[in-house]
Design a protein around this nucleic acid. Sequence first.
DNA 1: GCTTAAACTCAATTTTCTTGAGTAATCAAG
DNA 2: CTTGATTACTCAAGAAAATTGAGTTTAAGC
Lengths: 391, 391
Amino acid sequence: MSHRLLQRPALRGANATRSRDHNRQMVLGQLHARGALGRAEIARRSGLTTQAVSNIIAELEKDGLLLAAGAARGRRGLPATQYVVNPSGGYALGIELRPAAILVALLDLSGELVWQERQPLSCADPESVAAILPGLRDAALSKVPKAKDRLLGAGIVMPGPFGKTELSGRATDLPGWKETDPATLLSDVLDLPVIVENDANAAAMAERIALAAEGMDSFACLYFGTGLGLGIVQDGRIVAGAYGNAGEIGQLPVKTDGGLAPLESVLSRAALERHLAGHGIGASEIQEIARLHESGAPALQTWMAEAASALSQALAVIENLLDPRATVLCGAMPEALLRDLVVATPLPRTVSRRADGAQAPLRIGTCSRMAAARGGAALVLAQSFTPALAA
Amino acid sequence: MSHRLLQRPALRGANATRSRDHNRQMVLGQLHARGALGRAEIARRSGLTTQAVSNIIAELEKDGLLLAAGAARGRRGLPATQYVVNPSGGYALGIELRPAAILVALLDLSGELVWQERQPLSCADPESVAAILPGLRDAALSKVPKAKDRLLGAGIVMPGPFGKTELSGRATDLPGWKETDPATLLSDVLDLPVIVENDANAAAMAERIALAAEGMDSFACLYFGTGLGLGIVQDGRIVAGAYGNAGEIGQLPVKTDGGLAPLESVLSRAALERHLAGHGIGASEIQEIARLHESGAPALQTWMAEAASALSQALAVIENLLDPRATVLCGAMPEALLRDLVVATPLPRTVSRRADGAQAPLRIGTCSRMAAARGGAALVLAQSFTPALAA
DNA sequence: GCTTAAACTCAATTTTCTTGAGTAATCAAG
DNA sequence: CTTGATTACTCAAGAAAATTGAGTTTAAGC
C-alpha cells in the first residue's frame, strides 16, 4: 500500500477546508508553544474571533487532541477555561539511520519521548533497513499501545548531503541509498506517511519542539553526528537551501595550531577519537569518552582547548551570517563534555552579540544523543503545529 | 497622519477575507513569476478551482492589477485567455539612505524601473532626511503621474545592522538613527506605508523580483554597499535571523597574502579604493573605477586577483552553509568589473556544486548600482505577490 | 464533419468564519 | 453584601468565500 508522503507542501490557495486546517494547526501550535491558554487568549493571538476558536477547540477536543486544564483565576471576569495539547492525542516515530545502527524514538503529541530503542546494524543498505523497520515500529506500538491508531507518521533521518554534490561519496554516506528514494521505500514498508531529513536539520527540529516554550524559533543547531552538521531554523522552519543541503559546516576552515583546517577535522566525534588515539587511548563508545572526561584525562583536555577555539570561530561565522537567537549543541557527545565545551568557548564579537544578553548565545540541547531520532519525530509533529497555508 | 507600517505580519488565522487576500496574492504571484497564464493553469498551480480563479481574476482586472494578454493557441480545446500583471496597476517607491546620498527608485507592479534619482546629502540624520523625502516622492509622482493614486508603499533601505549589537558604531552607520524608529518617522513624513530593511537584504529582494522568471527563490546576494553585505533568500523570503541582522559577512576571515583578514577588508568598495590609493590612484567615483578597469590598470588587476581569492573562500562558506541556487553579485561596483570578478573567481568544491551545473552558481545581478533602492521597492511589491497567510 | 479535449461560465450548495445579542462567573468598590 | 465592571463564553443568524455540477464555446485530431 502506498502512502502519502509528508513533504514540504507547495504554497496553496485557501478554501474553507484548508482554512479550517490552517486554523486548527494554528490553535494547536499556540497551545504547544505557550502551554495552557483560554479561547479568548488564543483568539487574540491568532486574529480569529472567540467563536471561531470555540468551534475549533470543540472539534479538537472531540478528536482527542486537546484537554481542558482547569480555569485561570486571578483576573477579573469569568475565568477562562484553559486547554492544553493532549499528549496521547497523537504520536510520531523518529528513525535515525546510521552506518552501524538504527535509533528509534517515539514522541507523543506534547513532544515527550515515550519510547526509544537502539538497534545495531551490520549493514545500512536499503534492503536491510527495510527488513528491520517494521519490527521496530511494532515494538514501539506494543510498548505504547495508545499510539496504535494515533501514529501520525515517521520521520526518517539520514546523514546528508542528499543528491549529487561534489561532497558526496564520503565515508559518512550510507551505502546503497543514492539509487533509492528513501521516502517512497520506507513509507511503503512502514505503512506510514514518511518525511526524510538530514541529521542536523532533524536535531534542530527536535530542539525546536523541546525549546518552543522559550520562543526559540530562529536559532542554529550544531549536531555531532557522523560528522558535524548545522541545522538552521528561521521562524520555526528549517532553512534547507535550494537543494536541501544547507548547513554543511564541516568544511569551514578554522585556524588551529597546525594552520587552517576544516572545522570537522577538529570539532567532531571522529576528530576526538583520532586525537585520543594519537595519545594511545582507544575510545569508540560514548561512555568511554564520558569516563575520560569525568576523570579529567589530559588528552581530552588538550582536545577541548582546540575544539573550543574552533567552535568559537565557527560561532562567529554562524552568528554573523544567521543572527540566531542561540546556537544549540547536541548529538553524539557526553552531555557533561558539551557543557564544559560551552564554558570553554570564548564568545566572539558578532552582530548577534547583544547588550541585553538575556539569552545564552551558546548552549547545549535538551535532546542529547537521541536528538536526530527525536528530530525525525519532531518533524512530523511540527506539521500538526504549523499552519498549513504558511508552508 | 499616521500610517500603517508594512512589516512582517505575524501568522494569522484564516477567514473569508484573508483567504481571498491570500488567493489574490497567490494569483498575482504566479503571474509575476511565470508571465502569462490562463485561469485553468493558475487553478492547477494553486489548488483552487477554475471558478474561484475566475472570480479572483475578474476582481483583479476590475482593480486594474491584471491585463488580458490574448489567447494561448496551439493546444486542443478552447484557447485559454492569458493574463499578465498590469505594470501600471501599482507602484512602489524604494529609498536607499547612504551617508552621503539618497537613492530613489520607482518600480511599477511588473518590477520595471520607471524612475530613479540620486540626491547628494550633506548629512544623513533623521531631520535632514525627513525634510528631503517628501520632495523626492513628489518628484517621482510628477514624472510618473499614473502612480499618483497607486503608490503601494515605500521601502526604506539603510545600512545594517539594526539595534544594539557589538558591531554597532562603525563608520558605515548613519548618524542619529539609533534613537529614531525610521519606519514610524518616515511613514508619517511620506504619508505612505513604509517597510525598513538593510541594504543587502533589499538588494536580494530586488534580484528576487527581477529573477523571479528563472524561479530564483532560494539564493544569496552579495551586495557592495558601504561595506559588504549578504542577503539570504529562502523560498522567496528573506532569512533575517532572530534579530534581523543576518548576513553580516564582512567579518568572515579569509586567507590573503598578508595572512587572515576580514573579507570586507579585501572585497569591498572601500577596500578597492584603499588598494588604489596605495598605488597612488585616487578613485572615489564609480566611473573612475570603471575607466581604470577598462584601461586594464595594473593596480586594479592586482586587486582583482586578491578579491577573487577572497570571494572564492566566501563562496565556499556561503554555499556550504546555505546551499543557494546561485550567489548574485551586485551593488556599488562597475558591472564590467563584477563580470570579470565572476570569471576570475575559482568555484570552490561545496555541497552546492552540482553535476548538472545548469545554473551559474556565481553571477552578477541585474539591478547593478540601484540594487538596494530597487530592493526597497521590491520589498513592497513582494507583499502583493506573497500569499498573506504564508507570511 | 464528427469526436474529443480543454477553458470557461452560471447557478446552487457547502463550509467556515463573523456578527450581535445574551448569559455567566469573577473581582472590586461602596 | 450589594452593585457594577469586566471578562469569557455561547447561541443563532448572517455573510463571504470556495466548491460542485451542468452547460457552453472553441479548437485540434481523425
